[in-house]
Amino acid sequence: MNLVRWRTPGFDPGQELERLQNEINHLFDLDYNDRSMGLFDRATSPAIDVAEQNDHFIVYCDLPGVDQKDVDVSIASNVLTIKGEKKMSERGEKAKIFRKEEWAGSFQRTLSLPKSVDPDRIQAEMADGVLRIQLPKREEVKPRQISVNVS
């Protein structure tokens, strides 16, 4: 499977340098968490797992705090696209902030599916902040058990 990482348009060298400096600083931070920050920003391109089973693939995607209606899963010519928007948690204007690591904004992840996936029978569900997409394989590519009779 090919993965295409989504990038925000525009490139600002100054900002990129600052980001690199921040990331190097982060390496020395014991509290550093590579899930939301870092060279591979997992926020704009959420981390996924793809598990393969005999008759289907399952895609798991961590989307904590994302509402079901804000997630859009679509398929076009065997390219699966997960996109959506994560909203910032609500708090009053007078709030005194001690720590702010949550990320909000839009995200997208694209995944090229193998030919064996049947695009018509894809199912997706959200539970406990995890998106689970079930991609059944076509009937003709499923491994079949052929019984051998011993006479």
Partner: peptide, 25 residues
């Protein structure tokens, strides 16, 4: 274990912790 990413803030007599824990029931 991993440290959950989150926001911590103080508001109207409360301290709020909002921690991201996907997949935890």
């Amino acid at each position: 274990t991993v440290r959950p990413v989150g926001n911590i803030w103080e508001e109207e007599g409360t301290v709020m912790l909002r921690l991201e824990m996907p997949g935890v029931t």
